[in-house]
Nucleic acid binder design. Sequence first.
DNA 1: CCGATTTAATCCACTTTATGGACTTAATAT
DNA 2: ATATTAAGTCCATAAAGTGGATTAAATCGG
Lengths: 393, 393
Amino acid sequence: MTQAVRHDSMRARNLGVVLGEVRRSGPITRAALAEITGLTKTTVSKMVGDLIDAGMVTESGALRDGERGRPGTAVTLSGERVAALGLEINVDYLSACVVDLTLSVRLRYTQAVDNRTASPVETLAHLQKLFHKAVDEARSEGLSIAGSTLAVPGPVDGGRLHSAPNLGWHDVRVGELLNFPAAVDNEANLAALGELWFGSGPGDFLHVSGEIGIGAGLVVGGALFRGARGLAGELGHVIVSPEGPSCRCGGRGCLEQYAGQEALLRAAGLGGGPAGIPELLERLHAGETRALEACACAGQALGIALTSAIHLTDPGTIVLGGIFAPLFPWIRDPVHETMTARLAMMRHAVPELTVSRLGGDAATLGAAGQVIHRVIADPWTHVVTGRTGPGPR
Amino acid sequence: MTQAVRHDSMRARNLGVVLGEVRRSGPITRAALAEITGLTKTTVSKMVGDLIDAGMVTESGALRDGERGRPGTAVTLSGERVAALGLEINVDYLSACVVDLTLSVRLRYTQAVDNRTASPVETLAHLQKLFHKAVDEARSEGLSIAGSTLAVPGPVDGGRLHSAPNLGWHDVRVGELLNFPAAVDNEANLAALGELWFGSGPGDFLHVSGEIGIGAGLVVGGALFRGARGLAGELGHVIVSPEGPSCRCGGRGCLEQYAGQEALLRAAGLGGGPAGIPELLERLHAGETRALEACACAGQALGIALTSAIHLTDPGTIVLGGIFAPLFPWIRDPVHETMTARLAMMRHAVPELTVSRLGGDAATLGAAGQVIHRVIADPWTHVVTGRTGPGPR
DNA sequence: CCGATTTAATCCACTTTATGGACTTAATAT
DNA sequence: ATATTAAGTCCATAAAGTGGATTAAATCGG
């Protein structure tokens, strides 16, 4: 149910509207904010004052635009006080980053841990150390961490990680095992949000994260689509060919069996050993036929799965990330041709096919960005608790 | 951007919250409304008064629940004043229905028109007559039509119908051709909403409308998912087998080629003639092998497409409607078995598979229901303009 | 059968928040 | 130097919800 609005929540929401507009429109004067939001100059002035007190906004000098009349003083987001922490569990390392309100990355950490051999509890203990280190160091820079989110490589439903094949984890209640406050979410979802906020991401796109599994995050109207239980976006198990090779999910012919990291390396003649994507890239650059053909096949399969995804979810753009980012030059054409051929008559415009500009950090950034976005949408608590000293009696 | 809240919009929203709660919780006292919404009794009382004045709510007698203390007077939605009109263009007839605020169907119309031979303009002229007839007759019953929505059999993007194969329409700007005020939406989308509001529909489901084409409407959290351009839900073109028969969409192996009405009838040996679903049902009841096998094959194909859809969109339930409703006894098992086998390892619970309780009216009902839902979510304008006579000066 | 208790609904003084016009400030134009 | 224009602040007012007091209408207990 939509919640009822009272005086305090009216103010809370309007604060969010004003702060959101400051974020959206860069340096902007109070007068312009009033115009855009529809609030009066008085109201906006008061709110901007509160936001400045809370350290979320700063005056960034006079905005002289050549027009006559008194020039306005522009305000911008301030990265000096509020920050958020993004965490990620990868196969062989943990990573963390601290991002401030302006979405600038302030601190980054990685710590090598072989999470395939470690138990969930061990891994999470390592993660806790990383958490405290990051929080302490952020504090020493004057930043206060408004919240944190943890990215895990598999579908999450209410803090519970269903399965993470590349960690060997199955049905782990991560939320309950954490000894520090953090939200838990799927790496593919958060990578999509990372692309939205830190990449060139437009407002509507399907972000494909190719790893050992293949996940996807669907962003529509600037918000992530999660489905009924938060398990949406399992692109890796969309059926490419109903009688294809069987998959660990129980099905047959899933995309993962054609374009997952393992399948791809095997097709390129690199399976079975410790060989990885770097080797594949070398061979591609060397023009080795087997590697090129492996990419072409994977691209076609991806194109087929994406065609189904487009018909079902109608994304504006497709963004390829994860292992597909470095492979983009070799898979772009087969993916694009497959999609174009199969979508030809149904739509005026086939979704654009682009590549992620973010590296392996996409999920960590998205995790931190999610917290920042929540703060910007609802700065109320931070404004109130952010007051210095006891308020007027 | 989220809009700023001012005093009037605060009141508008709270009116919507109160009215929405009246709808949700049946006959309910003012005190209970206050408890649930978090507003004070004073505020709720004032709002209920306004809603009664506007004819949207009535007192429905004392609510004596055996407890001691003064019994409350319950209020319910009133179907006496506000209503909505749903319209639908089918292959060989037009239909309309008037639904009141309580979602009771008050008037129904159908008019035989062969829309395959008629041009869009001719069809819409017929529709206009139907519109006025419905509005006039509703008015004579004391109902005022708050709005209307038109269901068309194909994907719609901003009032523009991309293609409606069973009408032979292509790229028709329906919104601009209408000489009366109505929103235009895809029949599959509206059928899903019909199921949500008039059927047994739970809050999260994928509604499959099998017709000549196969569409789907995805409802998550009580809201329809439309994708970036409103073209989501084209289940009929999800790829079942990449090298399958070619489809009018330009692709190959689309679901429609296996489970669409034409493919199904052809497989059952009924193709080429005027034979239809009734004949197929006769043969199924007679136990004819060819018909049974056709259903089994269609069911398997549907199961494969739904498996992909489930991985991508994670619906809580699958509701089969359209031609799949009467065929349900014969396709249920193949669909269910295919889905279960292929989803086994990925989720604890495979989505439930149910059948639509609504007949061919689903879309018309959804169309009218959409208007009603908008009125309930935002009753403000109706409360203000609904006042009888000049207000107190 | 009557008073005590309990809950519903209304009344009224008050608080919170936004409004809108007046006022001050700081630029450009003439 | 003065007029004009726009930004930002001040202040009295309006709109809406709050919370406690009051009235109303039941059940419970003796």
